[in-house]
Design a protein around this nucleic acid. Structure first.
Lengths: 205, 205, 205, 205
DNA sequence: AATGAATGAGACTTCATTCAT
DNA sequence: AATGAATGAAGTCTCATTCAT
């Protein structure tokens, strides 16, 4: 019989995670301290530890919930039974990613993701979860390729898994490039994919 | 007049960096400790501090030298004045990356790179260096595109910068996918790029 | 005008003390926490603090009430105006102690006593109370010795206080030995005392 | 190849243990803090942790080394092949205990022992060690009884184990009584034992 | 140059107690 | 009176770095 509503509890949890994201972005994986997260969360030390068992649980929650939330937003796009042409589909995915990452004006979730990629290497559970999420992304891409092939809109001899792997690289690479090079433009990616996939594309007739 | 030869000094430095890479891969950014690195390096605490100013300098050196070394191996491929067709060029780049990453049997440099991406976010100098390196990769790709276009082997109306951005995404995404999904195959990427770029590619005539 | 009956209040207090005793036995002085005691008592945090001012008051109550209760049970035996022979008297005392200590099947009060001995060192009030209780035990023993001497059943030249001190050592030592060595048998103690006190005892004629 | 001699290392260890004993006596099991021990030891935080893995290891060392050291001093007395009469033997043991306990003018080791009795309850290893030590004391007493019996100086029908148990109680009880009642005199114990064991002892002929 | 013991700031976490509901 | 979430002081311990040898 909780004295505070589950709703309120969830809000507090999110308050902590939000603070953790901000600190993670600002100071990086090595330098985030509980003190920082606690101060930014506006809660007291004890309260934070009432919601999370410890620092590791907070970081893990940031990473895994982040991945899960993004997946939840990407999946509807990728499970569309009538997928738009390849460049447009990729554009939609990248658009959803940017939307997700910049929705919150205080935190760039893209950078948090990069930290998550690093952090997940050292935690078996998190690594498995991450692997599962990105494998599912690839599978969803493969399903789209199969639908294109079924619709006669894609080279029927191509390996859907292989194309999916390429598109997954494009997707993850877009995130990495934004974080590392500082820029990566969606319409440029779309245009480039269109240039590649045009019949008059790579090779002159 | 140094008491030990410059050569020996360099060997010791590399000994430390190698230990740092292994520890980084094994324990992750947050958990690497000087104690671990020192133990693994086989040197004494004092000796390590004789070669590096501190932990941050070691991690930074791991990241920046790693990026620099990889760049050194990729650039000859990308500055080829007669670049092979797009799928093959990308294949060569990815091949060089995998070769670089797995050359040392004790450390997977790919994973170290992911940690580096995370770490670079928090260090302005390192961030600038990383940004420069990946921007140069993009520029080199753009140059290749221009060469293809000059040779009539690529849609002349396409924006070279945009295509370069896409290929940079593919390249970085390949690294990320290997680290996160566990697999990413070079020939699949090549085949997928070929499928995309075939005249009979995306749309049936 | 208390909102709850004094009777009920006392029952709740005892509930807390019982929980504290169990936790003390299970985890030891250093590790008992209010959280543990509260959980085991079945009351809420606030309720427990309604009955006791704090942790120290609970532990002190456990120790001092334990000592007081034991004293209450031992005194009738020791103030008997016609004390049985020494071995039997000691046997009765030890029997009462074991009975007291093992009465409650959930807690071995002997072990709680040992913790109490330790705890009393650091609390002046408790130390005084403990000192008083054990001094009274010694005095009661001395009175018995005097009664034996008066009845011609004990060497009249012996110092009653000294014998009382010895018997107090036997009594406290019995408790300690049970806790530390794991065993200490009452009848063995009686038999040994009989062997010692027999005319044909220590030295052959 | 240690840079500091084993001797010096041992001295530092003892420095910490000495500080721990003093703090234990002064503040009790619940209240000793590392900060206190460290400050009193004169070493730095890190140095203390270089000699002991943590607080528990320090307390355990205090208890177990204390027990071991005392045992080492008592055993020669109890393994004497020609033990003096019972009162004198017990007197020698109690004397050795008091000597051991008060040798150091800064710490009363008797009080530390009481804390040790409490602490040992919660640590299986320590409990076993303590049990072993006090069982050995009992065994040594039993051996003495057997020697007396062999020499015709003790009732041959008495159970040596039982008498040993009684003498162990006297010994431990002496310690407890000193700590709890504040006083317990060796010669009084000796005199009382003599009174008990005199042929003209308990019962008049 | 090399060693590794020592340092101590600061990290993480617990837990006795309070107080709004 | 009762509840249990919240508080935050204080505790334990780690670890990057220094420095006497």
């Amino acid at each position: 019989m909780p004295r505070i509503t589950e709703e309120r509890r969830e809000a507090r949890r999110e308050q902590v995670l939000q603070a953790a994201r901000a600190c993670l972005e600002e100071h990086g994986l090595e330098a985030v301290s509980m003190e920082m997260i606690i101060a930014r969360s506006g809660l007291s030390t004890g309260a934070v530890y009432g919601y999370f068992k410890g620092k590791n649980e907070i970081i893990n929650a940031v990473v895994s919930e982040g991945t899960a939330q993004l997946a939840e937003e990407l999946l509807p796009i990728l499970t569309n039974t009538e997928p738009p042409p390849l460049p447009e589909l990729v554009g939609q995915v990248l658009g959803a990613i940017v939307d997700f990452a910049t929705r919150d004006e205080h935190v760039n979730r893209l950078l948090v993701s990069i930290h998550g990629w690093s952090h997940a290497q050292s935690d078996p559970t998190l690594k498995a979860a991450t692997r599962y999420a990105y494998t599912r992304l690839r599978t969803a891409y493969a399903d789209s390729v199969k639908r294109w092939q079924a619709a006669g809109a894609f080279d029927a001899t191509a390996d859907p898994e292989g194309v999916a792997e390429l598109l997954t690289s494009v997707t993850l690479g877009f995130v990495a490039q934004r974080a590392l090079a500082g820029t990566a433009d969606i319409s440029r990616h779309i245009d480039a994919l269109e240039a590649l996939t045009q019949p008059s594309g790579v090779r002159v007739p």
